[in-house]
Nucleic acid binder design. Structure first.
Length: 220
DNA sequence: GCGACAG
DNA sequence: ATCTTGTCGC
């Protein structure tokens, strides 16, 4: 199946309205069943941003061994606008997902889940679109505030915004900037953090996302 | 009007 | 994200 590009070419105002609408479909209850395969998603750009590279890597769980890798390159059709990242990166990601053999039971995305102005970051959009459990693992904060996180691997503190919890700030390893973890779809805060922690080894990023980033940046 | 601002 | 070399530290 091919994704119609036009449905992603919306004006910023229309895209924001669509996010507010689709955010109602996000499920924040834990519906993650048995997990044998975990997928990692990341996107890179080349040729001055004219080409979008989407990388999707599937790892076995709990061994975290790489089972499959998919890399697709498509023309970029949407600019980077804070808060509208999914409209820029999802078309390419969906192409990579289509190429996958065995679909993963859970997807970790480089970017926010509900830790978003309209509670609909790229992890939510991908999760709702594919109807699969997803978790947002961002390297930086988009919205919200939080206390300092202890410099101890596994230390966490809640990410808050407008009186509600929107995510968790997690120190994935000593001496590095913390990660911003938030539910994407079909998972709750606690499980989101738990899955990320179970995928941590000796690096700042959890294996699924780390492997996807390596592939997207062509650093094979 | 002045900052903030995932990738 | 991407553009880019060396450099500090385990």
């Amino acid at each position: 199946m091919t994704t119609p590009l036009h449905s992603w070419n919306l004006e910023p105002a229309a895209a924001r309205a669509l996010q507010t609408e689709l955010a109602r479909k996000v499920v924040l209850r834990n519906e993650v069943g048995e997990v044998r395969r975990i997928g990692g998603v990341d996107v890179g750009f080349e040729d001055g941003g004219k080409v979008t590279r989407a990388a999707l890597v599937v790892l076995s769980f709990p061994s975290l061994a790489v089972l499959e890798r998919q890399l697709v390159r498509v023309p970029t059709t949407f600019p980077y606008v804070p808060g509208l990242l999914s409209f820029r990166e999802m078309p390419a990601i969906l192409r990579a997902y289509e190429q996958l053999g065995e679909k993963p039971d859970l997807l970790l995305c480089d970017g926010q889940g509900i830790a978003h102005p309209r509670r609909f970051g790229i992890a939510c959009h991908l999760g709702v679109w594919l109807d699969v459990p997803t978790i947002g693992v961002a390297k930086k904060r988009l919205v919200g505030w939080h206390d300092e996180v202890a410099d101890v691997k596994g230390a966490t503190t809640a990410l808050l915004d407008k009186g509600q919890r929107i995510g968790t700030v997690l120190r994935s390893r000593v001496g590095v900037k913390p990660l911003y973890v938030s539910p994407g779809h079909r998972v709750n805060h606690e499980e989101a953090v738990s899955w990320v922690m179970r995928c941590l080894t000796r690096y700042r990023l959890p294996e699924p996302t780390r492997q996807a980033h390596k592939l997207a940046s062509l650093e094979k």
